[in-house]
Design a protein around this nucleic acid. Structure first.
Length: 257
DNA sequence: ATGGCATCTAACAGATGA
């Protein structure tokens, strides 16, 4: 069972760069998307259906902004759009799909590039932790995939000293992420398999940052402790070039004891 | 300290992103 998280930075732009062909070749069971930046009627969903995929979207009110989706081979038993708080749900940042044996969240944590948005980002984060803690009592087997806009540790960013005062690597944000994993009982699946530096999921478009691997690891597949023993591997897919982010894959053996 | 690049909308300039 393959699950991928991918911030596509505009799904229509991604389509123009052979996103559907990429999906057809990789064929994940579940694809969690962020920054679709489109209303549903602006997305050529027929191409997904032609590949046998179901798809669900939670879009922002503002046109061309944010938006998350879940594309899946299996039809979800239930889809939950948003988290129930209008300030967050207006921005299309959370969608959940419940399957027979597990649930999946696709999450796009707000950016605070504009530092005026830091309070909003942290409020979202705190709310998300409470939401997930509650959720796990009903759905213990949970995978949270998304763009958290936080690089967790020093090995997750190319210049931890210079960037320690920049949102995305602030002590406050990093501490929240540690608390989130701890209190929600989730595992960072990529780091479960790989403790080496230099593995990032986002690079600036500027200054040839991707070619020089001056990046940040912002995109995660977090796996509940109940599913941890089923994980087989987790890798980033840097050959996918539809976005300033790259996809991150986590694979499970559903039959593992 | 600034800008650099890309994808959006609504317009051929401005917002957003990290």
């Amino acid at each position: 069972m393959k699950i991928i998280t991918y911030n596509v930075n505009g799904i229509r732009a991604a389509y123009n760069k052979n996103f559907v062909e990429w999906l057809s070749a990789v064929r994940p069971d579940v694809l969690c998307l962020q920054e679709s930046k489109a209303a549903i009627e602006q997305i050529d969903t027929a191409k997904l259906e032609d590949l046998g995929y179901h798809h669900h979207w939670h879009c922002a009110q503002k046109k061309g902004y944010s938006g998350v989706g879940i594309v899946s081979k299996q039809k979800p038993k239930h889809v939950e759009y948003g988290c129930g708080l209008a300030d967050f749900d207006n921005e299309g940042r959370i969608i959940r799909a419940d399957f027979d044996d597990f649930s999946v969240l696709s999450v796009y944590v707000p950016s605070a590039t504009n530092i005026d948005r830091l309070d909003f980002k942290m409020q979202f984060c705190h709310y998300l932790l409470d939401y997930v803690k509650d959720l796990r009592t009903e759905f213990p087997n949970l995978i949270i995939s998304g763009d958290f806009n936080i690089a967790h540790n020093e090995i997750d960013i190319h210049d931890p000293v210079r960037l320690s005062k920049v949102s995305g690597f602030l002590p406050m944000e990093r501490e929240w992420l540690s608390k989130f994993l701890d209190e929600a009982g989730m595992v960072d699946s990529f780091r479960h398999f790989n403790n080496q530096p230099g593995h990032y999921s986002w690079w600036s478009y500027r200054a040839a940052a991707r070619e020089r691997n001056k990046g940040w690891r912002l995109d995660y597949n977090f796996v509940s402790d109940t599913l941890q023993h089923k994980m087989i591997r987790s890798v980033k897919l840097p050959d996918a070039r539809h976005s300033d982010h790259c996809p991150v894959l986590t694979e499970f053996d559903p039959g593992a004891k």
